[in-house]
């Protein structure tokens, strides 16, 4: 399978930088500890804020640190390669490959996500389990399986948004400004800065409906057992709908880009 080959190659490419991975795990863990204590202070004052208790809040923090790189909340991943290849003109090579370009890059990004999950995901999680009594693993098989499914959907959602940002380079040549803006939006509306469930209304409802909720809030709620049974299916369905919309949009943008834009240097 071609796409599996692309994914495993990307996995291997990322696994070259062992020092970077160890440093990253350490950094994620430092931030995890800081946010855990800050949230504990908040839930100490308000033990039921957002329908969470202190233990949920600490668990949420560490799920967030585990997913930060896996879901590429800040940006990055194979879409950065794409933007660079658009800038240099190498994208022409991608365009005449006899495979769908989006599938190629998505496969690569899933390989990257798998690597980041195994290292920067599991590393801080183990530490959280050792350091914080409040940290909990999923309480049921349903929650664990739901989380894994939801996580895959989270990576694809993030890929679809990053794809759109990267494709802006067809027109702007330099994606960095837009990429940073997109990163800021994602950081806030994914629930990475603060769980979306404690946003005041109407922001809570709005934020939960946006695609970024897929990045962290939805998988975390499934892990914590806040969404079960039919509600769990509804959560996954919402993620699926956004993926369909965003990937469809991505195809449209790619098509109009290849039709209208003269690739750099040729």
């Amino acid at each position: 399978m071609l796409y599996v080959a692309v994914a495993t190659r990307t996995f291997r490419r990322y696994s070259t930088y062992v020092g970077a991975t160890v440093a990253g795990i350490f950094t994620n863990s430092v931030f995890g500890v800081i946010y855990s204590f800050a949230y504990l202070a908040l839930w100490d004052q308000r033990p039921d804020a957002g329908g969470y208790d202190g233990s949920d809040a600490v668990t949420y923090v560490w799920i967030g640190q585990a997913l930060l790189m896996t879901v590429a909340v800040w940006g990055g991943g194979t879409t950065d390669d794409l933007a660079e290849r658009i800038r240099t003109g190498d994208v022409a090579i991608d365009l005449y490959r006899p495979v769908g370009m989006m599938g190629w890059y998505l496969a690569g990004d899933l390989g990257r996500a798998a690597y980041h999950l195994l290292t920067r995901g599991i590393g801080p999680t183990v530490l959280a389990w050792l350091l914080f009594d409040q940290f909990d693993f999923p309480g049921s098989v349903q929650a664990a399986l739901g989380f894994v499914l939801s996580l895959v959907l989270a990576v694809v959602t993030s890929f679809a948004i990053r794809w759109l940002v990267a494709c802006s380079a067809f027109w702007l040549l330099d994606q960095s400004g837009l990429r940073m803006m997109a990163g800021a939006l994602a950081l806030f509306f994914s629930g990475m800065a603060l769980p979306l469930v404690i946003f005041p209304e109407p922001w809570r409802t709005i934020a939960l409906a946006l695609p970024w909720a897929s990045y962290l809030q939805t998988p975390a709620d499934i892990w914590l057992g806040k969404r079960e049974g039919l509600d769990l299916l509804a959560a996954l369905a919402q993620q699926g709908v956004w993926i369909a919309v965003l990937l469809g949009l991505g195809q449209l943008v790619l098509r109009s880009a290849t039709r209208k834009v003269v690739v750099q240097g040729g």
């Binding site: 908040l42 004052q45 308000r46 400004g177 803006m181 950081l187 800065a193 404690i198």
Partner: peptide, 30 residues
């Protein structure tokens, strides 16, 4: 690019503070 990066930098760190301010919609002291 320069101006979007400058503004985005301000927004990113600003959202940090917005996060803290949102905490204070449910609590009075942290």
């Amino acid at each position: 690019s320069f101006w979007t990066l400058t503004v985005a930098g301000a927004i990113i760190t600003g959202l940090d503070f917005v996060g803290i301010a949102i905490m204070f919609t449910t609590i009075d002291t942290l």
